[in-house]
Nucleic acid binder design. Structure first.
Length: 577
DNA sequence: TCTGGGGTCCTACAACAA
DNA sequence: TCTGTTGTTGTAGGACCC
């Protein structure tokens, strides 16, 4: 807790929805809801216009549609949001080297560390300047909170919303917090809030009155102590620029509950592959494999297995996940499956190979070849002569009968290629990692006819959004093999009419609104879905070249990885199943 | 009418080792 | 050698956040 309000918290206003409104002039001033459009989708962000109808994030999409039937419903376009986010983070980086991003649209900044503020007036100037810069560079608004601690800076930015700045003077925090709901404090959600309410505690002043011992008794040691300190306004957590990831996971909710055991297993293997792709992309390997199963009744089970050493071998993760699945009862149906890896290590593949080789040499010298997994080494030579596929070389050879994540020799070769040996029928799914995507050619082989590949909330294989009440989730599937699909909200270009975005599609037609970020609201035209003049395109910059004095040499927003980002580029979405 | 995805942290309990 | 204590690790689940 410092004596000057030099910790800044930035929170972009209704970020996803605001970015879509900036990109689509016809949506400005109108209710916009961004989220999963499938039958089990939820709202990611609602514009302030949509919030007036009672729509808010985490609300089931079906409920949002009932509350705001005339809103525009769009699937998230993370490549666009990421590029805007990068620009915002760059502006924050100009204020201080200590920037702690919390998500795409939120971050803490230590102004003191950057020398950009040392007292209330200078902090306020820095905050206002930042808001101006963000607006100039991105065309969007953000709210700024300034205080002497992270907790209070966050509370301040919440109070500043939308499009404002609030500064909390150090020394006033206890008075300020006293009448506030306990739910204001970070870490107090619905469960803890209700727990405290039953004990007669609803506002922060009552937390202080209750005292630390009582809070510990009510909500447990760690939570009780921190709750008491926060209620007093005490928060010494520093702004931390870099945080190491502790786990990597992927999960999918299915539009329809899965019952077929073979299909469930196949999906688990697919998730394991995607998880490993992410794991590798982050430069990690991990020791503990976690399987998550949410059943038809929403009850959630997790099962985990810790290997003897870290791995980033897809075959090992796949097999471990499958082992964890085996004893689980899935009768009744499964609505969600997830695979995760925790206990991360910073090993690169090269490190693993080096360690593996060293380990094998040492083992050979000891003449202590392990009987249980020896055949793996013999079969595949150097690469798999490591102690099974699991964390090659990091762990000592396993004891006979011990679980190590050992894999059949044929797929036990550590290295990128191993994944391709995958489950029969998954075609190796080379693009399965990273962003979720609509089914591309070749990926459809394992999916049962009529069963949606894409889980709810995905980028929408079905790809229809209702705008102005038109279109409903799930209708988009044309049922015509080879027909192109157009995902609502995504950018397109027509040879004759220029740039636009998909407003909806279905029954062999796609409706496009032709407008750009800098243009007035455009007209709507409808085409056949296979119109050769219509092509998917990349997101356009929200602020045109040269509009921002500081950024005149480059577009304000231009996705850096657009060509590599298969997650939500129109190109991927539109490929035929 | 239902309830996403990707994380973090905490608690409780059992097994095991010192 | 047996027993009790304590610390560590693995596992499972829950709460919370954006």
């Amino acid at each position: 807790m410092r004596s000057a309000p030099t910790i800044l918290h930035l929170d972009m206003d209704a970020f996803f929805a605001a970015a879509e409104q900036a990109a689509k002039p016809s949506l400005r001033g109108k209710p916009v809801v961004v989220g999963g459009l499938g039958p089990r989708g939820v709202v990611a962000t609602a514009s302030y216009e949509a919030r007036r109808f009672g729509v808010h994030s985490a609300m089931p999409m079906a409920q949002a549609r009932r509350l705001a039937p005339n809103a525009a419903y769009l699937v998230p376009r993370f490549s666009l949001y990421r590029s805007v986010s990068e620009q915002v983070m760059e502006l924050l980086g100009r204020l201080s080297p200590l920037v702690e991003p919390l998500s795409l649209d939120e971050a803490f900044v230590d102004l003191e560390a950057g020398g950009s503020a040392h007292d209330s007036p200078s902090a306020r100037v820095a905050g206002e300047r930042l808001r101006e810069d963000i607006r100039a560079v991105t065309g969007l608004t953000g709210s700024v909170g300034l205080a002497g601690s992270k907790m209070l800076a966050k509370i301040a930015s919440e109070q500043a919303k939308p499009d404002g700045l609030v500064l909390i003077e150090p020394g006033t925090e206890r008075e300020l917090l006293g009448p506030m709901s306990v739910r204001t404090l970070p870490g107090v959600g619905p469960a803890t809030g209700e727990h405290l309410r039953r004990a007669g505690i609803t506002v922060c002043a009552e937390l202080v009155e209750a005292g630390e011992d009582e809070l510990v008794r009510l909500v447990g040691r760690a939570h009780g102590v921190s709750l008491y300190r926060m209620a007093l306004g005490h928060d010494d957590r520093p702004v931390v620029a870099e945080r190491d990831a502790k786990s990597v996971s992927v999960e999918d909710t299915f539009d329809v509950d899965l019952h077929d055991r073979v299909r469930i297993r196949l999906e688990v293997e697919r998730l394991a592959d995607r998880c490993v792709e992410r794991l590798r992309a982050s430069g990690h390997s991990g020791r503990t494999i976690v399987l998550k199963v949410r059943r038809f009744d929403f009850s959630t089970l997790t099962r985990s297995e810790t290997l003897r050493g870290p791995t980033d071998d897809p075959a090992v993760v796949r097999e471990a996940a499958a082992r964890l699945l085996e004893p689980l009862d899935t009768t009744g149906g499964v609505r969600l499956l997830g695979v995760g890896v925790s206990g991360l290590a910073d090993y690169t593949q090269e490190d693993l190979f080096a360690q593996a080789a060293a380990e094998v040499r040492a083992a050979d010298e000891r003449g202590a070849a392990d009987q249980g997994t020896e055949e793996a080494g013999q079969a595949t030579g150097e690469a798999s002569a490591t102690p099974s596929g699991a964390g090659p070389g990091v762990a000592p050879p396993p004891e006979p009968g011990e679980r190590t994540g050992a894999v059949p020799a044929a797929v036990g070769v550590p290295g990128r290629a191993a994944g391709a040996g995958g489950a029969p029928g998954d075609g190796g799914d080379p693009g399965a990692g990273g962003q979720r995507r609509a089914p591309a050619a070749g990926a459809g082989a394992v999916r049962g006819a009529g069963e949606p590949y894409h889980p709810a909330g995905g980028t929408g294989a079905d790809g229809v959004a209702g705008s102005g009440g038109q279109g409903r989730p799930g209708e988009a599937g044309t049922g015509v093999p080879g027909e192109r699909r157009w995902t609502a909200g995504h950018d397109v270009r027509h040879a004759r009419y220029g740039a636009g975005w998909v407003q909806g599609s279905g029954v062999g037609r796609v409706t496009v609104r032709f407008e750009e970020p800098g243009s007035p609201p455009g007209r709507v035209r409808t085409f056949r879905v296979d119109d050769p003049d219509l092509e998917p395109s990349d997101p356009l910059p929200l602020v045109a070249w040269g509009e921002d004095p500081d950024q005149s040499s480059s577009p304000a927003i231009f996705p850096k990885e657009r060509s590599r980002d298969g997650g939500d580029s129109g190109a991927t979405e539109s490929s035929s199943p």
